[in-house]
Amino acid sequence: MTNDRAVAELEEFLAERADRLLRTAVLLTGSREAGQDLLQTALERLLRHWRTLSGDPEGYLRRTLYNLAADGFRRQGRLQRKLLLLRTDTRPPPDVTAQVDLRDALVRMLVQLPPRQRAVLVLRYWEQLSEAETAAVLGWPEGTVKSAASRGLRRLRELAEGWQPTELHGTKRG
């Protein structure tokens, strides 16, 4: 198989999956830029093994994505993590009402969780996988997935209880 053919096959593979995979990567990293870099790195690894891969390439890609995310954040220094938080925190909301929405706040709080907890929550609540399926993707024991999810949700509830909605009655644009 030539390289060109592998690239063409990968493009075809991505045609219906790329958007969703990028959204997953964005949730894992907290920003579009970092998400795109993460997905690109995972695709590079997939391409490396494309010819010899047996089984489902999507499963391989998702496992790579999640494991890279956990691994990558372990390598990031405090400064980069802080910058990621700042970038997430200062991202302009799509509209005024979103600012008070706990849903949006929770996703921003997700960035503050350790990468393993974040990966599990994205798999369970974004990908809507069961605990067993999540464990299979990450290559972890099911018990590890359960405890990571439990700790992650507990932390999010703590953060949510301390969250105060921003007043809607501020400057009205018009």
């Binding site: 949730l27 579009r32 994205v122 999010l156």
Partner: peptide
Amino acid sequence: LRDGMGRFTEGVRA
């Protein structure tokens, strides 16, 4: 959280 993830990634296109 599930809803928020959907909103956060709305419009994200590869």
